[in-house]
Design a protein around this nucleic acid. Structure first.
Lengths: 375, 375
DNA sequence: ACTCAAATTGTGAGCGCTCACAATCCTGGC
DNA sequence: GCCAGGATTGTGAGCGCTCACAATTTGAGT
């Protein structure tokens, strides 16, 4: 790794890079001097600064002709309202901060991507703040910082730390939680105490995936679970219910983390048991690890064991074998979260379609081996 | 997908969630009323607001005893300086915005992760802004927005759009570019015109990886390239130089994108040619696609073809076969970028170690098949 | 033409903090 | 014991914008 430690050149500028600079800049900001303020626009348009403020905020009672002039001056001066000043003065919120415990896991990063995209369209600034640990102090700190005046919050609450963070957000701050499918008490509570939460309902999908494996002839389906913020997730519940419907007692789920290594370890455990012929995994990384472990244990996938994941990461199609998995559209979920936030702060809520999870059958699943299959 | 469209409950609050709220909050912010300002602290400590300002900014000339009192008042009131007001008043910069063309690709997302981590430690807020397209207007817009007063910039410039963005940042804005290894003219320019850029020097690594494949007995090594913002990347150059040193004419590199599908297509192309026994890929996703294509074409990896990637994504170890690849520490690169930024804006630059790329040999590479190998 | 309300515009104040400067306080030296 | 000069503290002003309100202009109605 190479780090050019030099400080950038000071005012005496060279022509080469100066030439590059404004090449293709949009209409505004001519010259390059300090950007125009609302006052500059006001005097340029011959109105008061307040009128300009009204125009840029879409206030109704401004005469059309006046608005025209102001708009023209804005364009001419390349004026851009200063978000910071706006926030200080207590204006409309124009920023979201995403609170998450991890920005690299597929679900979370995809959600962030969706939020960023929606926010960009709505001309919101987006901030990101990672919650360092589950420790109360860290959680409180993360919330405090993220809240800093002028920003709404979206909390990706897929684990304990972020779940706590979501709970700790003061009620006067606009917030939307991206959560696991509410279950049991929580779900019931939601009907009486609606909260601004969004989620992907994966119970049915988990059930479908399980039923699919069963239909292939497997006697049972094992489950390798991601950590759940709630005591029992709906993903797990869906798996259980499908098993129950088929009159099969659910085996003990294997508790794992989020990463492939954890899946690998779970896989090693499972590989030793010849009764294991079908494994449903909480996410694709886990599935990848399980497949690898099976492989190493001399149990080909799908020949000897079927493995199904959750997420459908872009790579899943190209794994060997290509992974059968449940597609979860986290990017869309992120967009939905942002839409919910807009609804909450009064901006027109763009109703979003609700794509459902979908089982994508590929190569990693098939009938059980002749010897052990058939029920 | 389920979206609870309800707005959050208004002031009439329920005890259950109220109980959750401040549970475990840190020392400060008792009660929950509007947070304390610098003035509250000032009167609580019996000094002027300016003295408080001096204390929170670590100004030297404040009597120790006074500082004590102020600090005590700050702690007692749970005061947190308001970042927004601070930015408005022209104080020290406390925010970075990361400009990138994509936040999900491994390199970029890892860099963002590193930046976030370093920024969090330095108590900086971090924003993210995606550059929509290469179009000048979009690029300019992204830069304009990101710049909005009070924020420094880090541009992840791995492709054309972001490279343009980097070039367009006005010179009075603190900025650090995360770039590809400078090459040719650009590298020469850097010696005279040092810029605040950081990069991972991957030329040697590319050369090493190529030499490694050659040492296994392959007659040549093919290269599947990621898009490069510079006309020729150092990754490509390293590959070429290793080939040249071995007295081998470099075959035409295959131009690809960043994604596995693109690698798959390149792989199909390559699979048809029996002379192809070793393929170096610009990243792991490409390698994954190439492996898949080879597999489908009946050319086992590494039995018939060796495939080597770049990045060492966390999954690489668990691919089948486990991927031989060059580990690139983008997270550390992100941290370095932030450190460079701090150096630039005067904050103490934490010198960062410089990890180097490293070839990780796993299962996807081996000697060429008996029939075609040996040189 | 004249009144009145509504529509439109302008004024005052301040968000919380930082600059630049002026006003104090203290210390030593004589 | 008095004064210079630095150390320490305080005051004034304003960042760019938004509130709340007051002032002005309209237009309808009679």
């Amino acid at each position: 790794m190479n780090v050019s430690g030099h400080t950038r050149a000071q005012p005496p500028l060279d022509d080469a890079s100066a030439e590059l600079r404004r090449e293709g800049a949009d209409a505004g900001a001519p010259g390059g001097s300090r950007s125009a303020t609302i006052n500059d626009v006001a005097s340029a348009a011959g109105v008061s600064y307040q009128t300009v403020s009204r125009v840029i905020n879409g206030h109704p009672s401004v005469r059309a002709s006046t608005r025209e002039q102001v708009l023209e001056a804005i364009a001419r001066l390349g004026f851009r309202p200063n978000r910071v000043a706006r926030a200080l003065a207590g204006g409309r919120i124009q920023a979201v901060t995403v609170l998450a415990s991890n920005t690299t896991l597929y679900g979370q990063r995809s959600a962030i991507q969706g939020i960023e995209e929606a926010a960009r369209i709505a001309d919101f600034a987006v901030g990101v703040r990672v919650i360092e640990s589950e420790a109360p102090a860290d959680v409180a700190d993360a919330v405090d910082r993220a809240m800093e005046r002028g920003s709404a919050l979206i909390v990706i609450a897929f684990d304990r730390a972020s779940q706590r963070a979501l709970a700790e957000v003061p009620r006067d701050v606009p917030v939307v939680g991206i959560v696991e499918t509410p279950v049991g008490d929580e779900a019931r509570l939601l009907t009486t105490q609606p909260k601004p939460w969004v989620w992907i309902d994966d119970r049915q999908a988990a059930s479908d995936a399980t039923a699919y494996l069963l239909s292939l002839g497997h006697k049972t389906v094992h489950y390798v679970a991601i950590p759940s913020s709630t005591s029992s997730s709906q993903r797990l519940a869906g798996w259980q219910s499908a098993l129950r419907e088929a009159g099969i007692a659910a085996p003990e789920p294997i508790a794992a983390q989020w990463d492939p290594r954890s899946g690998f370890e779970a896989g090693r455990l499972l590989a030793g048991d010849p009764a294991v012929t079908a494994v449903l995994c909480g996410n694709d990384d886990l599935a990848l690890g399980v497949v690898k472990a099976m492989h190493q244990a001399g149990r080909p996938v799908p020949g000897s064991v079927s493995v199904v994941g959750f997420d459908d990461v872009p790579q899943a199609e190209f794994y060997t074998p290509a992974l059968t998995t449940v597609r979860l559209d986290f990017t869309e979920l992120g967009r939905a979260a942002f839409a919910a936030l807009q609804a909450q702060i009064g901006a027109a809520p763009t109703a979003r379609p609700r794509p459902r999870p979908q089982l994508i059958v590929r190569e990693s699943s098939g009938p059980p081996p002749a010897g052990s299959g058939g029920r």
